[in-house]
């Protein structure tokens, strides 16, 4: 009985594999990762629609922001079209070093990621002197930013730990204000936005990690001015405790591609390398969905129609 059953299983497994492994040499669409924020999804849709216009098939694949570089590297994805310098440079370069991922140029904008406060915090005067970081030295200020679990200190809400690991705790030390402030790591971007709303409701000040371009640009958000960034100022890049209080660098927004993409889909790759969006354009993409209530695909269609000449330029 056991033998019979083993044989039965083995036979059916082998059979199904030989049959389907051979016929299902899946049609090879261009696989574009989609993450969970609007502008990224709309941009993916724009690319997909253009690629289909060029005669390719394109498939949108839900993915995670950092692990997609490994996927691009081994060819499970063809592109990664929004690569932020400060959060994703590390996995980006690591994948490039291992081989398989190529740099397909940058978008035409400067990205910035930094701790900041919603504008109403300044308006309410919760911490006079902001956005200059020196204002954070005041204990009264810090007290306005305290929460139940911050041990009386003011709370910085950082993004997930793996985004910049210990940069922010080190910065507090470098600035000498770690006796007044502490860093709490949020678990996800969703949590950051929820905190923005919750703090406002409570009337409690909040310092959170944010970036631009982002949808918060519209609702009023100010980044704190920290001492200027320079190469190697951070502890993890060989800096010292004195210099590690530096702020964040202005950064690029890169496009990554799988190494075979130029060969397998030359026309698509050409468009991809030329493609270069500006901050207002990315803002528009988010706006079409978030404020005008369009679906991502419709927003992309609309966007392409509005920017036809640009698209044509990039296609040729």
């Amino acid at each position: 009985m056991v033998k019979f059953f083993k044989g039965f299983i083995l036979a059916s497994v082998i059979l199904s594999f030989t049959i389907f492994g051979s016929i299902a040499k899946a049609a090879d669409p261009i696989r574009i990762p989609v993450l969970n924020w609007s502008s990224q999804i709309v941009m993916a849709n724009v690319m997909a629609q253009i690629f289909e216009e060029q005669g390719f098939t394109a498939e949108l694949v839900p993915a995670e922001s950092a692990s997609r570089y490994e996927a691009v590297r081994i060819g499970d994805l063809h592109v990664a079209h929004e690569t932020w310098e400060s959060t994703m440079a590390l996995p980006f370069y690591e994948a490039m070093d291992k081989g398989g991922l190529i740099d397909a140029g940058s978008h035409d904008l400067i990205t910035f990621e930094e701790m900041g406060i919603p504008n109403w915090v300044i308006d309410e005067g919760l911490c006079p002197g902001l956005p200059n970081w020196e204002a954070l030295k005041s204990p009264e200020c810090a007290a306005n930013f305290a929460t139940a679990d911050s041990g009386g200190k003011g709370r910085w809400l950082e993004g997930p730990y793996e985004w910049h690991t210990d940069v922010m705790p080190n910065r507090l030390k470098g600035l000498g204000i770690d006796d007044l402030w502490m860093v709490k790591f949020a678990g996800s971007a969703d949590a950051l936005w929820a905190e923005l709303d919750a703090a406002k409701k409570e009337g409690r000040g909040t310092v959170i990690f944010n970036w631009s371009p982002n949808f918060t640009d519209a609702s009023g958000f100010t980044f704190i001015d920290f001492p200027p960034y320079f190469e190697g100022c951070r502890l993890e890049n060989g800096g010292s405790l004195e210099t590690t209080g530096c702020g964040s660098p202005k950064g690029w927004l890169k496009k990554a591609a799988h190494i075979k993409f130029p060969i397998t889909h030359p026309a698509a790759y050409k468009f991809y390398t030329k493609m270069s969006f500006t901050a207002p354009q990315i803002g528009l993409m988010a706006d079409l969905v978030d404020n005008q209530g369009m679906s991502h695909a419709d927003a992309a269609t609309q966007f392409i129609a509005d920017h036809r000449d640009l698209m044509d330029l990039w296609m040729n």
Partner: peptide
């Protein structure tokens, strides 16, 4: 996903680590 400092934080974090 909310924000913790336990094993879970590293498990979630592993999703976006190379």
């Amino acid at each position: 996903l909310i924000g913790t400092e336990d094993l879970g934080q590293l498990i979630m974090g592993s999703l976006s680590r190379p």
